[in-house]
Lab assay of single mutants.
Amino acid sequence: MEVRTIKVFTTVDNINLHTQVVDMSMTYGQQFGPTYLDGADVTKIKPHNSHEGKTFYVLPNDDTLRVEAFEYYHTTDPSFLGRYMSALNHTKKWKYPQVNGLTSIKWADNNCYLATALLTLQQIELKFNPPALQDAYYRARAGEAANFCALILAYCNKTVGELGDVRETMSYLFQHANLDSCKRVLNVVCKTCGQQQTTLKGVEAVMYMGTLSYEQFKKGVQIPCTCGKQATKYLVQQESPFVMMSAPPAQYELKHGTFTCASEYTGNYQCGHYKHITSKETLYCIDGALLTKSSEYKGPITDVFYKENSYTTTIK
């Protein structure tokens, strides 16, 4: 009895394709271990004539594949690729409408935090270190965002349907971005203890939790000093293409032309909904596939993004 075979390709990165001759009487799992086709788990399936010449994702289970996976995804987590594939199996079914010149995501599976993050990423200057993220990001900007969303979920250790947080998501993504040249110098002034300067680099240099107003941050924000008295913390120097200011959701007025974009969060910790506000020729609110415009805006804002380049204080 002759062994019926077909020729397929296996890959971990969709760049390096490895030619395989597979036995049609055995499952993919018996031949390769966990195997995925377009995100779908085909591990328990036997090869079919229609699979001839198709590319299958496999887990990096030998040295060659491990090197290829690390170079593309910059992670050695053995569960990463499987999590990416199972997320992709959902995100490829989502709709990605162009809204006001940006790629958004039609609401499904509690994905409003991903839509808000995706919209924000198209408006701030950011370059990702893992080629996987950078490639998928370019495709997302062009309207094909399924891979990018699935990668975000995998890097953030999230599953489809789980509630997510924009600030946490951005923080994970910033860790995989090139923020080497970003720098922030802060000064804390206390009447009792004097003053202390701190220099922050990388992710810490672009994120701040405690106030939404970048102007206020430049002037000074009140913080408790270690001595128990009130101290003032203010920005001395900022070198970065953008800054992200966050605070627990509270009524906040966004003035046209003073910011790049913002995240609105309605609801409580267990259950809520994100919308995205962007400042173009007027203010726009993007909620999944829905767009509304207004000249002014007041609502429960939790993150505001500002364009920056270089700032030095005039406070002496």
Rank of each mutant, 00 (worst) to 15 (best):
E2P: 11
R4G: 13
R4V: 11
T5C: 13
T5Y: 14
I6A: 12
K7Y: 14
K7R: 13
T10H: 05
V12Q: 04
D13Y: 09
N14K: 13
L17H: 11
V21A: 13
D23C: 11
D23S: 13
M24L: 14
S25V: 12
S25R: 11
S25E: 10
T27G: 07
Y28A: 04
Y28M: 11
Y28K: 09
Q31E: 05
F32Y: 09
G33C: 01
G33R: 08
A40H: 12
V42Q: 12
T43D: 09
I45S: 13
I45N: 13
S50T: 13
H51G: 02
H51S: 04
E52L: 10
G53F: 11
K54T: 13
T55S: 12
T55R: 10
Y57L: 08
V58P: 04
L59S: 14
D62R: 11
D63P: 06
D63E: 13
T64N: 09
T64E: 13
L65A: 09
R66W: 08
V67Y: 10
E68N: 02
E68P: 04
A69M: 15
A69R: 02
F70I: 09
Y72S: 10
Y72F: 11
T75S: 13
T76S: 14
P78I: 08
S79R: 12
F80N: 05
L81E: 08
G82E: 14
R83T: 02
M85A: 05
A87K: 04
L88P: 05
N89T: 12
H90C: 11
H90M: 10
H90G: 14
T91E: 01
K92L: 10
K92I: 10
K93I: 00
W94Y: 01
K95M: 09
Y96V: 04
Y96K: 05
V99S: 08
N100W: 07
N100F: 07
G101P: 05
G101I: 01
L102I: 03
T103V: 13
T103N: 05
K106A: 14
K106Q: 15
W107C: 04
D109Y: 02
N111K: 02
N111R: 05
N111V: 00
L114H: 04
T116F: 02
L118H: 03
L118G: 00
L119C: 05
T120P: 09
T120I: 14
T120E: 05
Q123F: 01
I124F: 05
E125R: 06
K127T: 10
K127C: 09
P131R: 07
P131G: 04
L133M: 04
A136P: 03
Y137T: 00
R141S: 08
A142E: 13
A142C: 14
A142S: 11
G143A: 03
G143M: 00
E144T: 07
A145R: 04
N147G: 11
C149Q: 00
C149N: 00
L151C: 00
I152V: 08
L153F: 07
A154F: 01
Y155C: 04
C156S: 08
C156H: 02
C156P: 05
K158I: 00
T159D: 09
V160P: 07
E162N: 05
L163G: 14
D165W: 01
D165Y: 07
D165F: 06
V166N: 00
T169W: 03
L173C: 06
Q175I: 05
H176W: 15
A177W: 01
N178V: 03
V185N: 04
V185H: 00
V185Q: 03
N187A: 11
V188G: 11
V188N: 03
C190F: 00
K191C: 07
C193I: 05
C193K: 14
C193G: 05
C193T: 02
Q196C: 09
Q196Y: 14
T198K: 13
L200G: 02
L200H: 14
K201F: 15
K201R: 15
E204A: 14
E204H: 11
E204R: 12
A205P: 05
A205N: 01
M207V: 07
M209R: 15
G210V: 04
G210R: 03
T211R: 00
L212W: 04
F217A: 15
K218A: 04
K218M: 01
G220C: 03
I223D: 07
I223E: 08
P224C: 09
C225D: 01
T226Y: 10
T226I: 12
A231S: 06
T232F: 09
Y234D: 05
L235I: 09
L235T: 03
Q238S: 01
Q238F: 03
E239T: 10
M245G: 04
M245P: 06
S246R: 03
A247Y: 09
A250V: 13
A250F: 01
Q251C: 07
Q251F: 11
Q251I: 15
Y252I: 11
L254C: 04
H256I: 14
T258H: 13
T258G: 09
T260E: 11
C261G: 01
A262N: 07
A262Q: 03
E264Y: 04
G267M: 14
G267N: 14
N268T: 14
N268Q: 09
Y269W: 15
C271R: 11
G272C: 03
H276T: 05
K280W: 05
K280Q: 14
T282S: 12
T282K: 09
L283S: 03
C285I: 15
C285Y: 01
C285G: 05
D287R: 01
G288E: 13
L290P: 02
L291E: 14
S294Y: 11
E296A: 07
E296M: 12
K298V: 15
K298L: 13
G299R: 07
G299W: 00
I301M: 11
I301A: 00
T302W: 00
D303P: 02
D303C: 08
Y306S: 02
K307C: 12
E308W: 04
E308Q: 08
N309T: 14
S310F: 14
Y311A: 06
T314C: 15
I315P: 15
